[in-house]
Amino acid sequence: MLITLDETVRLINEGKKLHIAADDSLLSQLPKGNWIGGTTPYFISEEGGLLSKEKLFVNEIDYAEEIRVESYGKYNVFQIVEECYDNGLIMLIIPFGTDVAAKYAKEAPEVEELLMHPTIGWISGFDLATGGTAKVYDGTRGESYTDKAVAMYIKLPEGKSAMINMINIFADDKNDPVIQFNDNDLTVSKCTVNGKEMNFAQYIKENGIGTKMPLVADHNGSYINTSIKEVTEDKVSFYASVFRNVEYRFAVNVEDYAGQFRDRVNEASARCPVFSCNCILNYQFGNLEGKKIPPYTGPVTFGEIAYQLINQTLVYCEIMG
């Protein structure tokens, strides 16, 4: 729910367990309490997509038996799999463009047992028109960080479990060339295309490939996107990492981005997500400003976490049982 600063302060002072997304000018005014937060001025509210520096998006975590909050740098971020509750949910927020975000992007899929611990979250950001610094907040300690991730461990009652899913408008064409990379990285020069080594930037340019379309990898029917940030003379950088031994193809062109997004939302089976976030690229390319996509409300983000870091996707969590 999108609410005022006064309403948010009241919820914190009542001892509610909260996830909060807002512009830094608002988050910095909040008192200590049972909350974590991240910066973004973009939201999908019940009234539609909007940019707001006057209101905060707040999720009440009333399904939790208990919570704990910790912050992590790049050297210990994967302690989350050891420190989480056995039956719970990890809600993770990481500031955009940081070492800890790069570490998480590159290594999360290879972390043993990560898939056994439902992990959802987002990359915090800023107003693209004015720029700024992405931050995360640990409300329990009254601290903010520009270089650390903040995790809220949510313990679920016995018989309940968290299920994370996503809505992705992209898919591949299995007849298209297979692209592979030698390493897990956020910036690459070389790749192989159908087994033949070449420069990836040159391949994109020579084939006139539009970089509005992400690379997609088919994970047993679940398509994971990796969006292209920049193509220079000889290098390509991504918003999330590419991985060695994974087969990628460019997503099939989507003519009506907004329409396709609405169709996928209508097809999805979520009844009552307790959390969702949506990519800033979907917000921009899908013209989501002013558009409602019930029941999915939440922050618009610089990257989504559904176990690993992904892009151009709406992720959500439901509590089952």
């Binding site: 898939l115 994970h219 047993n220 679940s222 690993q308």
Partner: peptide, 8 residues
């Protein structure tokens, strides 16, 4: 989603 990622 996690099961699909695990299978993959």
């Amino acid at each position: 989603l996690a099961f699909n990622m695990e299978i993959s």
